[in-house]
Design a protein around this nucleic acid. Sequence first.
DNA 1: GCGTTAATAGCTACCGAAAC
DNA 2: GTTTCGGTAGCTATTAACGC
Length: 369
Amino acid sequence: MAELITELDWDFKEKIISDSIHGIHPYPAKFIPEIPFQLINYLGCDKNTSVLDPFCGSGTTLKVAQSLGLPCVGIDLNPIACLISKVKTTKIPPNFGTVFYDVVADAKSRKVDIDELESIPNINHWFKSDIQVNLLKLKKSIHDYLGHDTFDALCVAFSSIIVKASNQESDTRYAAINKNLVAEDVFRLFLVSCEKLNSSLLYNSSDFPCQIINKDVLAVQPSDINSTVGLVVTSPPYPNAYEYWLYHKYRMWWLGFDPKEIKEKEIGARAHFFKKNHHTERDFYHQMYGTLQLIDSVLITHGHAAFVVGRSIIHGKNVDNAGLIVEAAENLGFDVVERFNRTMNSNRKSFNLSYAKIKEETIVVLRKK
DNA sequence: GCGTTAATAGCTACCGAAAC
DNA sequence: GTTTCGGTAGCTATTAACGC
């Protein structure tokens, strides 16, 4: 390690890595790929070991690890996150470029009955009826490809358009507005998404295996992880901040998952803070302790674990999430190698826009003894 | 009527397109 | 070439609705 980690440039004002592949599906609070890239390069990972991200989200760390010639393991509770991660780290089938046109042609000629969508709560509040019809047609045509190697990519493209096709104002603002959408927009959006996916993934290098575990990280057993872990790079969810289950709620309904189950288990979900006996920062401490226990049991001796984490506010009180991770790590016997802040650059939008209130995030580097 | 959940409102401050 | 303005994302706070 030639220079100190804190002496590296963490502002990333210039884009080093193309992010087209990371933009195949909207996902809140993605970190920019330069962060895991720099962490993996600096901390190092033995070629015979994997990079683990226990909160992999849409798979930024996994994709970066893979592009650096390393196998990887990602864990996430959210099935949408796992689906995106899986597609991002898999070579796209060569026929995908024609399959999605067939899907749309087939969907257009279908007859469907939207009564079967009644099981989705408040569907009429969030989707115009003619939009529902075309989404259902598309869903059924995609379902014909179940078992084919294009199925997951089709599902990602379908998922990516759900919020756009709904009345939901944006991916992170859950309010219904009139967007003046017409039914045909469903097929148009889907085709745009598929084309983007196809061009981004066409030259995907995916020779290095990636294991995706769709599970609550606190329920993952060391034996679930199929490889030796040489390095951990992750950004955990923050308490009372983003609600991934909420932002992806209708994506999950449309794809046949149950968002309510996800909500119950989601670390940091705001739903846990509405209750009378609501979660506190100590709950977050215990969740991080549990995660670090898993890391401790799968990481090689002297292996590093890097956490990228911001602050959050619970009932008006600032919470030092990085401090809680450090506390849990020390109690488990990790060495805290480094802890420093980076200022988030407003012209790099992957994590937060300049509108956001979180202006800084902390990078914590741990080492297993 | 109360506890909980669902949904909306308020605020910030930047970007880029449209208008001038 | 310059100014204006609409659209917007990421939060936190508040209100409406629901279930018992």
